[in-house]
Nucleic acid binder design. Structure first.
Lengths: 190, 190
DNA sequence: ACCTGAACACCGTTCAAGT
DNA sequence: ACCTGAACACCGTTCAAGT
């Protein structure tokens, strides 16, 4: 569905792209809670223009990140065909977790996404999650992962741990260690 | 040294207590990110008065929660004497985790506390953490908990998982389940 | 010694007026 | 069809002026 955007007047299209370019910069600096006012200001457009193109902060993030989600979904399929179930899941979760680190606040934004299933961000990231759910199910059938967890558990846990470094930057160095602990908790006892 | 407060003029003491009473209410409603302006307003004091008594949001939270932390520290000692190491730790972590739920945003506020070791909240919650660290060490010596985790890992993980329900309220029902998964990840393989 | 509340510099969101 | 920017209702923080 990505790319199925309605035709825009030339000036509108330019504004939209300008906003996205600037937003990528500002979100990289300030995180997903970046000031929308600041984005509009630096893009040289009025607040109304920003709101016309992206009615919510979520829509803006979706435009910024949707492609990345789609790529992660594709990666899941590739890993599934190339590795045994347990390894495929572990590898994918690793890539997912490192994706959480691209913007400050992103992990929390994604966890918040679980809430209302109406947003663009929810849909976009739901497709990625579905791909992860597939890997999870296979890893459970092969006995690598305990059977009493579902995809939401895994998503929530990685999201929570991924956001630790955002609330306490000094914990950033142990991020991978913490993720490992969580993933060990998901492993089946045998 | 809780309780070692300098003598205050009678009106100042009354204001301080009034602010604390109202803050407890407002934080219960809005969480740890509650509007300080709202607290001052509802307490019937000027903004300057609030700031004079509590220079930062952290100081206000400390006044609100310090007693609770102290009690949790005492509980650690009691549990240590009454149970084998693994059980004592598990029980204490359970109480700690449910304490994280008393105010919305509290878990995140505590994790943020790790950062600057100058705040009152840091000190206060450090005493509680030290008590937990004692239980952790014993549980590691008894072979119940894997040796490659420290108290900060445990604190960060519980804090992260404890804050999930704040970012995504719909996940509240699985909070205990998620905590169980994390604690299983801390258990030693045997 | 303590208190008040206006002032300042920010937000997000909406909407009348313009092209 | 699209854009602008002022208006509104909020913040946190500071500080001159008062008692």
């Amino acid at each position: 569905m990505r790319g199925m955007t309605r035709a825009l007047r030339a000036d509108a299209r330019r504004n939209r792209e300008r906003i996205l370019d600037v937003a990528a910069e500002v979100v990289a600096e300030q995180g997903t809670q970046a000031s929308l006012r600041d984005i509009a200001r630096r893009a040289g457009v009025g607040m109304g223009t920003l709101y016309r193109h992206f009615a919510t902060r979520g829509e803006l993030l979706e435009a910024l990140l949707g492609g990345r989600f789609d790529r992660l979904a594709e990666r899941a399929a590739a890993l599934r065909d190339a590795h045994p179930p347990g390894e495929a899941l572990a590898a994918w979760l690793g890539e997912f977790a490192s994706g959480l680190g691209v913007y400050r606040g992103l992990a929390a934004s994604l966890v918040a996404t679980i809430e209302d299933d109406t947003t663009a961000l929810h849909a976009s990231c739901g497709r990625m999650r579905a791909a992860g759910a597939d890997l999870l199910q296979r890893a459970q059938e092969s006995g690598d992962v305990r059977p009493d967890v579902d995809e939401t558990d895994v998503f929530a846990l990685l999201g929570a741990v991924g956001s630790i470094a955002d609330t306490a930057p000094s914990l950033a160095p142990r991020r991978d260690h913490l993720l490992r602990l969580v993933m060990d908790g998901l492993a089946a006892r045998r």
